[in-house]
């Protein structure tokens, strides 16, 4: 098999595997008993989205999409802190 065709098929296969693996955090997101469980599931979903975008960079040979990955990883890091702050403040306001 030629090398470039192998790389295309590998990238497509990786994208399909990651799309299938998107199902399990969604189940946890609907089922999760408490709010921190859902935060963790959302974190995992954004990690999978970042991985899919990197696979698409390799498939389409367009490295400019790396900026999108940068912004999404910033949001991935900051969003749990904001949700945790919201939870803390809401609980202390109720008291």
């Amino acid at each position: 098999m030629e090398a470039a065709i192998f790389l295309e098929y590998a990238a497509l296969g990786a994208i399909w595997i990651m799309t299938v693996s998107l199902v399990f955090p969604l189940l946890r997101l609907f089922k999760g008993p408490s709010l921190p469980d859902r935060v963790v599931a959302l974190d995992q979903i954004s990690v999978i989205i970042v991985s899919i975008i990197i696979c698409d960079i390799i498939y389409s040979r367009n490295a400019m999409e790396l900026d999108v990955v940068l912004i999404i990883s910033f949001l991935l890091a900051i969003s749990p802190m904001i949700i945790a702050r919201f939870l803390y403040k809401q609980k202390s306001d109720n008291d």
Binding site: A3, A14, I17, P25, S51
Partner: peptide, 26 residues
């Protein structure tokens, strides 16, 4: 040659992400 290494790394990391999301539900 570098394409074969890159393709195998891609498939391995996709499997790692699949293992991680199975761990999330389990």
């Amino acid at each position: 040659m570098i394409e074969y290494i890159t393709g195998s790394l891609l498939v391995i990391s996709a499997l790692v992400v699949l293992i991680a999301s199975v761990g999330i539900i389990r």
